[in-house]
């Protein structure tokens, strides 16, 4: 409640003024987009009509309209891109600084591909790897970083190829509060990667064993593999399992975790891009409030998992 109140005051004081010129610019860009889509729609309708009536003149007009729509949509795309970049630099950066001035925000960067692959949360090599909005910082004693990621595989069927998403969402890495040397994976039962083949490979190729844990609720939601049965239980204490269940309830059913190289990795599938400004609707209090909550949820995650409760041998 107090967080919300804080944000309201901050919004009125710092953001409202900043948003006035940005909103005017957004409305201009919106016009390009709207005009482009209307022209495109008209061109398509005209094509259908002229195909039915064999009218050559209307085909030519449809072509001209299509060309115009094409030009307008390219302009719209470029303007949208630079608007988003400017918006992130001014508004998103300000929100992040308000949450914690020590946070480093790099809109163009992302979690590295090596870190993504090291996490072991996604077993296949992506053919396309993209992402943005990288944030790193230290919450009390815990170093953490996260960014949006979108990883895809190329699927070829006959002559056509298309892209399928492997993971899209928030990818979070933090220093874990206990020392460990093995690898432990807490995959969501909903993770489409967990199939017969993965299970087979886990035991043979990756030298992992399935870990059966006591918590029924936890076992229903996750499937755990580890290179060390004792270490897996050292990490996943009964109370930590309860916290992971709560975390999944908070972040969504696809949330998976891994514990590799003394780090904890959390992958939270999210369909929408977190920090992209809207073009066809206002970037108002509600929308910016969503940005604010998205960043705060990472702090909630650290608190929920009690990553700040250090053992004595790990400072």
């Amino acid at each position: 409640m107090s967080l919300e109140k804080n944000f309201n005051t901050f919004y009125e004081k710092e953001l409202q003024g900043l948003l006035i010129p940005l909103e005017a610019e957004r409305k201009k860009i919106k016009k390009y987009g709207a005009a482009g889509f209307v022209l495109l729609g008209t061109a398509v309708i005209l094509f259908i009509i002229s195909a039915a009536s064999h009218n050559k003149v209307s085909v030519v007009i449809a072509f001209v309209l299509l060309l115009a729509a094409f030009v307008l949509l390219i302009i719209f795309g470029n303007k949208k891109k630079s608007f988003a970049a400017g918006f992130k630099e001014s508004v998103v950066r300000k929100i992040i600084r308000f949450i914690d001035p020590s946070l480093q925000y790099s809109p163009g960067l992302k979690i590295s591909k090596a870190d993504y692959l090291n996490s072991g949360l996604f077993v296949e090599q992506p053919d396309r790897y993209s992402g943005d909005d990288y944030i790193e910082g230290t919450h009390e004693k815990t170093f953490f970083c996260f960014s949006e990621l979108h990883t895809e595989r190329k699927v070829s069927s006959g002559k056509s190829t298309h892209w399928e998403t492997i993971f899209r969402g928030l990818f979070f890495i933090a220093d874990f509060n206990k020392n460990f040397s093995g690898r432990t994976y807490v995959w969501s039962e909903r993770n489409p990667q967990i199939n017969f083949l993965t299970k087979l490979f886990s035991s043979f190729a990756w030298n992992l064993e399935k870990v059966k844990l006591e918590s029924v609720e936890f076992e229903k939601r996750f499937i755990v593999y580890s290179s060390d049965q004792v270490e897996a239980r050292y990490i996943l204490t009964p109370s930590f399992m309860e916290r992971i269940v709560r975390l999944q309830q908070m972040m969504g059913e696809g949330t998976s975790l891994s514990f590799v190289n003394t780090n904890i990795h959390v992958a939270v599938p999210i369909r929408d891009e977190l920090f992209e400004p809207a073009i066809f609707s206002a970037n108002d209090h509600n929308r910016l409030g969503d940005f604010y909550n998205s960043i705060n949820i990472v702090f909630d995650m650290i608190d929920e998992l009690k990553l700040n409760q250090r053992l004595w041998n790990k400072e």
Binding site: E214, R233, T237, W312
Partner: peptide, 24 residues
Amino acid sequence: FLRLQGAINEAEEQLAASRRFYNA
């Protein structure tokens, strides 16, 4: 003393994990 207490805590946690593995 505090460092020692930390080491004992750590050993207790690992022991708890081993006991749970044994029970499983």
